[in-house]
Design a protein around this nucleic acid. Structure first.
Length: 409
RNA sequence: GGAAGGGUCGCAUAGUUGGUCUAGUGCGUUCGCUUGGAGAGCGAAUAUCACCGCAAGGUGAUCGCGGGUUCGAAUCCCGCCCCUUCCGCCA
């Protein structure tokens, strides 16, 4: 949600942004409704002013005013509703540093880290490795939990929790407040984050209780301060949050149907920052979130690359977005493991997260990035760390948790 | 699931015979005085949103949300949402 005043004063910028993001907006309709809206507000206010000045002797006129007001208010409500719907279709404006492009092909590689492993033996993918070492049970997973369900087993089960603990700790030491966040959330959190109204199909709904299963801790944690007014000197607020994540994967029925890449349920540690509305500062924090995620991959010694998303490949709310892709030998490709978004005040406006300044109230900026998502990261670990004898080396930073250096039969 | 209570200015609270309440008080915050400095103390200021306006300022709305009664509602009526407490169940 942008500010209508900002739109009026920066119409060209907004039009350009929508065009670059590949979104259609009915600009003429929006501006006409805005004019109509303001006209009606003027008229109703005049009538109310008159009403407020009436005394007991003017009962007759009072009744008349009431009738006129009722008509105008109805008209205004109608206009505001249509206006609100159009406002929801206006996407956020990308930062100038974002490349313009139509789709994923327009994304820009920012940097690569790590040497791709060379294997002098025929490699296995994570599915084969998981089977031979009894690390993930997909068969019984689907028997019990349906399509895309799984059991993590043995060292994989321990490794996932080790990764979570390692990551939560690491960021806590950096001053992030650790949270374990609810996955079951109310609908306003999803509207507030910008998942709704667009992504309804992607979210599980618990009909009976009118609750939803969040696909990421971004949803509950960004909404943590909803409807609150924060103190400027307490910002930024930095969080590192664990949550189980649920995704219907409705738009990707045929995609990644095998293995642990695309799952309906997984665990994730998410970084979330609520900060002041100072774009340069927010961009610095955006880089900090990126660096944190990169550091975790470096600790795990996994080769990765950082991609800067182009205008056409980012969502409505984003101002700037990076993806980090980790090398997965089984695919002979990089696969997305982290996603780092700066939303400007888009989410804060919807969630009413504000702070007080000398010049008045302002909406906060919000940012989020994955810290670690599993089992997807296990694919990279298993495949990159596999040995000729079919075993898997344990990344150094995890050895203390598993009490072993190698996973073998 | 059963029963009761409650949602008011950043926070905490006052306010229910309808107008004098957008709203008192405390805390917090800001400014000033005081001090070598800090604290305490004293004084003053301090809700948000929308619309009009270059500005000063003006007008309107908002006491959970929506509707109703009324010339007029924080205060009365109806519906909804949310929270708390007790009982029950339970990792």
């Amino acid at each position: 949600m942008l500010d209508i005043k900002f739109i009026r004063e920066n119409l060209q910028v907004c039009k350009e942004a929508a065009k670059n993001k590949g979104r259609d907006v009915d600009w003429d309709g929006l501006l006409k409704l805005d004019d109509k809206r303001r006209e009606l507000i003027g008229l109703t206010e005049k009538l109310r002013e008159e009403r407020n000045k009436l005394t007991q002797d003017d009962r007759e006129r009072g009744r008349e005013v009431k009738q006129e007001l009722k008509k105008l208010e109805e008209e205004l409500r109608d206009v505001e509703e249509k206006f609100g719907l159009l406002m929801l279709t206006v996407p956020n404006v990308p930062d100038p540093s974002v490349p313009i492009g139509k789709d994923a092909s327009g994304n820009k590689e920012v940097r690569k880290w790590g040497k791709l492993p060379k294997f002098n033996f025929p490699i296995l993918d994570h599915i084969e490795l998981a089977k031979s070492l009894d690390l993930i049970d997909f068969g019984r997973g689907t028997k019990v939990g349906g399509f895309r369900a799984y059991f993590l087993k043995n060292d994989a089960a321990q490794m996932e929790l080790a990764l979570m603990w390692y990551t939560l700790n690491k960021l806590t030491k950096k001053g992030y407040t650790p949270l374990i966040a609810p996955s079951l959330v109310r609908d306003f959190t999803l509207f507030g984050n910008g998942q709704f109204p667009w992504g309804r199909e992607e979210v599980y709904k618990i009909e009976k209780d009118d609750l939803y299963l969040a696909g990421t801790a971004e949803v509950p944690v960004t909404a943590y301060f909803s409807d609150e007014i924060l103190v400027e000197k307490d910002l930024p607020k930095k969080f590192v949050a664990f949550s189980p994540c649920f995704r219907r994967e409705a738009g990707s029925y045929g995609k990644d149907t095998k293995g642990a890449y695309r799952l309906h349920q997984f665990n994730k540690i998410e970084q979330v920052i609520i900060t002041t509305a100072e774009t340069n500062n927010s961009l610095t924090l955006h880089e900090e979130l990126l660096a944190n995620a990169e550091e975790i991959l470096k600790d795990l010694e996994l080769p990765y690359r950082v991609m800067l998303m182009c205008t056409g490949d980012m969502g409505e709310p984003q101002v700037k977005k990076y993806d980090i892709e980790t090398w997965m030998p089984g695919r002979q490709a990089y696969g997305e493991t982290m996603s780092n978004s700066f939303m400007g005040d888009f989410q804060a406006r919807r969630l009413k997260i504000r702070y007080k300044t000398k010049d008045g109230m302002k909406y906060c900026h919000t940012l989020n990035n994955t810290a670690l998502a599993s089992p997807r990261i296990l694919i990279a670990i298993m495949e990159n760390y596999q040995q000729k004898d079919g075993s898997i080396k344990v990344p150094k930073v995890l050895q203390q948790f598993l009490n072993k250096t190698v996973i073998k039969r």
